[in-house]
Structures are given as structure tokens and as C-alpha cells.
Amino acid sequence: MPVTAVNKDFDALTMTITAELHAGADRVWELWSDPRQLERWWGPPSHPATFVDHDLSPGGRTTYFMAGPEGEKFHGRWRIEEIEPPKLLRFADDDTDDEGKPNDGGPAEMTVTIAEVDGTTTMSIESRFPDRESLERAIEMRMEEGMTEALGQIDGLLAGAEVN
């Protein structure tokens, strides 16, 4: 299991997940910087993500959507705040409607840090919400997207790994 720690702060409304990955920092960075690789992990198998724009420069925008099994689409976007390849990526992530207008609730502030020691990379991802409403709203969206039907997906991934 790559996840080594999860920290949740219910007052600050933050969740930080830390993982150890057996790859160099440059390789781990590609999972974020290359939209085709990002698409392979952002959405669950039932709701694959398509990244339409992916401009990783300060102030740059990423827009994406996830497609559900019934053809429904869920849109989202990032606004890049700070980037220092392959070590740091900070962005605001929020859900939008079909026309790209943000839904209710403020964006989640995401901070990704990547550090390599001897070929093993520690990646930490912090999600910070401005208030409870935004957090709950984001989770309602994730539930609609089927992103919390977590269990059982890993087996499917393992079985399908050969065809990737």
C-alpha cells in the first residue's frame, strides 16, 4: 500500500494524504503534468476524466470533465497558483456547471509536494476547504460522480493493468 499517512483536521477543514512511491520525483511529477497520464488516475474507472486544457503555469487553467456510465458529465477546473517542477504544485480546484461557471461553494486549495530520496518519492497532497459548505458541496459532487464507491475498484485495476 503506497499510502503512509492520512491527516484530517476538522477545524481547519484539511485532509492530507502522504504516499511513498517507488519511482523518481520526475516520473511522479509526470502523473500530474502530462494530461494523458492524469486521465489515467483522476477519475475512477466508472467515471474516466478527460483533461481539455492543461496549462501548468502560474495563473494557468486546467479544465476537465468526468463522464459517467449514463453519459452524464461532471465538469471541474484548476487555477494554478504556484508551480516548481518536480517538487511543488499548488492549485485551486472547483466544480463547474456545463458552461464552466463555478458551482456553489469555494474551491479546494490543493498543495502537492514531491520529494525524492534514493529513488523513493514521498508525495503529499493537502486539500483545504474554505468552509464546511464548500467541503460538503464538493463531497456531494464526488458522490454523484461515483467517486466514493471506492471498494472493489482496485481489483478491476489490477485485472486490467496488462492492457494499459
Binding site: 499510502v3 519511482a23 511522479v28 489515467r40 458522490m143
Partner: peptide, 22 residues
């Protein structure tokens, strides 16, 4: 909500790890 978020990111990290291994 934070528990759900943890589940979402645990899945994502698993998939990232899987991509690296594959």
C-alpha cells in the same frame, strides 16, 4: 465529508502507484 475525501484520494493514489508499477 472528510472521510469521503480520504477515500477518494486513497483510490487516486492507488491508481497512481499502479500506473508507475505497470
Amino acid at each position: 465529508a472528510l472521510d469521503h475525501l480520504e477515500a477518494v484520494w486513497r483510490d487516486r493514489v492507488e491508481r497512481m502507484d499502479q500506473i508507475l508499477e505497470t
